[in-house]
């Protein structure tokens, strides 16, 4: 049986084959379309490489003290100079990348995971939503750094505690973002279709809800990573963060602060590394945001 509607004939059947997908030229097109992702990704890749291969990059023990060689300006033997205890700043900066990147990535992953769980629960379980969101509002009303300082004051200084102290203030932002996305997703026809075709709630969450929050979440995670690295440096700088025995960019800057006017290179090198890393992560986040969801650009 075949019909015509209002004089318009049914369109001819579609060809049986779809145009093949082109694999070649994909890399080049990606570079042209998303220059910020590529730039940010490459820069961050270099930083990750440095952090992983720190011992093989011409470094020496970052904690070895040699008072005879203290406060040397940058030279062939000490590329970034030495500090007031004669420690090699180059080695300390390279090893310091491990703390910054480690803290940044851990906080991003932890805050995303916890925030995602809270967001999905409050988006789906309406009676819990009110309570959870008021707790999140309460956390958000305290400045993140202040909360982190307060949390650090309660505990011993260790990298682990720093990660926890930075993660807690970041969770509410993720939770709110995910909750918002979940609230729009649960009304989508494809979720209703899944319900109608007998999908159980856990499977709906895992297959239909969570994967569709990933775009927004990954963008948010990069921003959290960047701000976590800055907050770690700030905490270390004011002495409330990573213990001074571990070289971190914040610690190196804190130690060089007193000599800032006469030996600026002590502060200069860790500061440059921190800036470049944060820039790389932010570039990556901006690029991801534009590539994944242009509408998000206005919201974040």
């Amino acid at each position: 049986m075949s019909i015509t509607l209002g004089g318009v004939a049914a369109a001819p059947e579609l060809p049986d084959v779809l145009p093949p997908r082109r694999a070649r030229g994909r890399v080049m097109r990606f570079v042209v379309q998303h220059p910020t992702i590529v730039a940010g990704g490459l820069l961050l890749g270099v930083m990750v490489f440095i952090a992983i291969f720190a011992p093989w990059l011409g470094t020496r023990d970052p904690e070895a003290i040699s008072p005879i060689y203290r406060l040397r300006p940058p030279q062939a033997a000490y590329w970034f100079g030495t500090d007031m205890l004669g420690r090699d700043i180059y080695s300390r900066v390279i090893y310091g990348s491990r703390v910054s990147l480690g803290v940044g990535f851990s906080v991003a992953i932890l805050a995303s995971g916890i925030g995602m769980a809270i967001g999905v629960v409050s988006g789906f379980v309406r009676w819990l939503d009110m309570a959870l969101m008021r707790i999140m509002d309460g956390l958000m009303s305290i400045p993140g750094i202040l909360l982190a300082i307060a949390l650090m004051a309660l505990t011993r200084g260790s990298v682990y505690n720093v990660v926890v102290a930075i993660t807690i203030p970041q969770v509410p932002q993720v939770a709110r973002l995910v909750r918002g996305v979940v609230l729009t997703l649960r009304e989508q026809p494809f979720v209703e279709a899944a319900v109608a075709s007998g999908t159980r709630l856990p499977k709906i969450l895992i297959k239909h809800i969570v994967p569709n929050t990933m775009a927004a979440l990954s963008v948010q995670a990069t921003y959290i990573c960047a701000s976590a690295m800055v907050i770690e440096a700030i905490l270390s700088f004011i002495g409330a963060g990573t213990p001074p025995t571990i070289p971190s960019w914040g610690n190196i800057m804190a130690e060089g602060r007193a000599l800032w006017q006469i030996k600026p290179y002590i502060v200069f090198f860790p500061a440059v590394f921190l800036s470049i890393t944060v820039l790389a992560v932010n570039l990556l986040g901006d690029g991801l945001r534009d590539a994944l969801d242009p509408r998000l650009a206005k919201r974040l």
């Binding site: 026809p189 494809f190 279709a193 899944a194 109608a196 994967p211």
Partner: peptide, 21 residues
């Protein structure tokens, strides 16, 4: 749930009724 098998739905918007992932 088992009875849902007998009754299915096709929605209006062919874009939002399929999970993009």
């Amino acid at each position: 749930r088992p009875l849902r098998r007998r009754m299915q739905v096709v929605f209006q918007d062919p874009f939002s009724s399929l999970n993009p992932r």
